[in-house]
Write a protein that binds this DNA or RNA. Structure first.
Length: 279
DNA sequence: AAAGAAGCCAACCGCGCTCTA
DNA sequence: CTAGAGCGCGGTTGGCTTCTT
């Protein structure tokens, strides 16, 4: 039995998003609390599939996204997390507030991999590359990459998040033992602790989690739909609407989206939404 | 200045998981 | 218990930009 496509592909637009589409999606997301992504394009007046909308929102349009190059400390954190988690980008991203899994993944593939190789570290295994005669610089066959755990295995990692969080804390404190040579990849110093951009009250008061880039509105909503969370939902929807209303002035001004980077990212990559919104 | 190569990243694809009826 | 719907995730691709010759 073949899997049905996520939506009827006929007549749906693909490829790069236009300014108009972005506007529609952002406006919709800020003014509604959609219960399913499937319904989003229809309700927002977009000729896109729900999946495409979710991707565009989570990877590009979300207000709490921190754009621009990863800082050194972020990069170090990614490297360390990758050595522990492997290619579990969403997991890695959850430790980098404001970053998206797609962004981290791209950055890993285009920058960090090269950097590590240059430093003599195998990006797969995080072990020093041992040049062997007759073969390339890689010794992938000698070292297994971080074990990719199955979903069922992941269930057994119930304490994973907390344990790793503690590890990251240790990492920040410089106490953790590392799989790779710390001489070559300096660890984070305490002063390098990243202050989540989500501390901007505007972003954090909204239901969009800043602790996990993959925490989409949909996932938030699926949680919120839970009876146990109804009360929270009402509260968060109110907060979200407050944010939306206050921020809608952006859209009323015939906003040029190219200015968004400036709006949501200052030179340090830290957001100052409070200032922006309150003004 | 032009052409080709390399780099980069947004977006797509499809699998697997969870939830629900 | 089962099947279907929907979502999240990771891998891959396509096309634009920048660099090199």
């Amino acid at each position: 039995m073949g899997r049905r496509p996520c939506c009827e592909k006929v007549g749906l637009k693909k490829g790069p998003w236009t300014l108009e589409e972005d506007k529609k999606l952002v406006h919709f997301m800020l003014t509604h609390a959609p219960s399913s992504w499937r319904a989003v394009p229809k309700l927002a007046g977009l000729l896109r599939c729900g999946k495409s909308c979710r991707l565009r929102w989570t990877n590009y349009l979300r207000p709490d996204i921190k754009r621009g190059l990863l800082s050194d400390s972020e990069e170090k954190l990614v490297i360390d997390l990758h050595s522990r988690l492997g290619n579990r980008w969403s997991k890695i991203t959850s430790y980098l507030p404001g970053r998206t899994d797609n962004e981290i993944k791209n950055h890993w593939n285009t920058h960090i991999k090269k950097k590590l190789r240059k430093m003599g570290i195998d990006p797969l295994t995080h072990k020093p590359i041992v040049p062997s005669s007759g073969e390339g610089v890689h010794n992938d066959h000698q070292q297994q990459p971080p074990v990719r755990v199955s979903a069922t295995d992941r269930k057994d990692e119930s304490g994973d998040q907390l344990d790793l969080a503690a590890d990251v804390g240790e990492l920040v404190d410089g106490k953790a033992a590392h799989d790779f040579c710390t001489d070559e990849v300096p660890m984070m110093e305490p002063h390098e602790i990243i202050i989540p951009c989500g501390t901007a009250s505007a972003a954090s008061s909204c239901s969009y989690s800043t602790s996990s880039s993959s925490a989409s509105v949909a996932s938030s909503n699926s949680i919120l739909e839970n009876n146990k969370a109804k009360e929270m939902k009402q509260q968060q929807q109110l907060q979200c609407m407050e944010w939306a209303e206050s921020s809608m002035s952006f859209w009323d001004m015939d906003t040029d989206f190219t200015d968004w980077n400036l709006m949501f990212n200052d030179g340090d990559g830290l957001l100052d939404l409070d200032t922006l919104i309150l003004n």
